[in-house]
Amino acid sequence: IQLRLFPPMAVMIPVMFMWAFLSLNDTWWGLALVYGIVTLPFAFWLMETFFDDMPREIEVAALVEGCSRLRVFTRI
């Protein structure tokens, strides 16, 4: 289910009940979980559009020069 389709209050009220049940209200862990759940999908979507716009020739050139896939991802 994509949370972008729901109004924020329709999602936050059940989350607040769940956090109260799990005793995560007013805790650092509860805040970190909500922050991660809300922002990570947007960050991945933003990174995907950036990587799709990058020319494939740069990646191929780095692979030809001997870089591994991980090194290409982290360095280039």
Rank of each mutant, 00 (worst) to 15 (best):
R71A: 09
W28D: 05
M12C: 03
L63S: 09
G30T: 06
T39W: 10
L5A: 13
F42G: 07
C67F: 14
V64K: 15
W19Y: 06
F6M: 14
I1Q: 08
A62Y: 11
R75I: 14
D52N: 07
P8G: 02
A10V: 08
P55A: 12
E59W: 09
V15Y: 02
R75H: 12
A10P: 01
F73M: 12
S23N: 15
L3P: 00
A32N: 01
R4T: 14
T39D: 12
M16V: 14
L33T: 09
V72Y: 05
E48N: 14
P41W: 12
Y35A: 14
E57T: 08
V64Y: 10
D52F: 05
I76R: 05
W28A: 07
A10S: 13
D26W: 10
A20Q: 05
I37Q: 03
L5Q: 01
L40C: 03
F42R: 04
F6E: 09
R4K: 07
P14D: 11
F21C: 06
I37P: 00
T27Y: 11
A61R: 14
T74W: 05
I1C: 06
M47D: 08
T49C: 02
T39G: 01
L31G: 05
E65S: 11
F51L: 13
A10L: 05
D26L: 13
W45N: 06
S68G: 13
M47T: 06
E48L: 07
A62R: 10
M54H: 10
L24K: 10
F17N: 11
R75D: 09
D53Q: 03
R56L: 15
S68I: 04
D53L: 07
L24I: 01
V11L: 01
S23H: 14
L63Y: 09
A61N: 15
E59D: 12
L5E: 10
L63P: 00
A43G: 03
E57V: 06
C67H: 11
F50S: 08
V60T: 11
P55Y: 04
D26Y: 11
T74G: 04
V15S: 01
V60M: 15
F17M: 12
M12R: 00
R56V: 12
G66Y: 00
S23D: 09
W28M: 08
R71T: 05
A20Y: 08
L3V: 02
L24M: 04
A20P: 01
R56E: 07
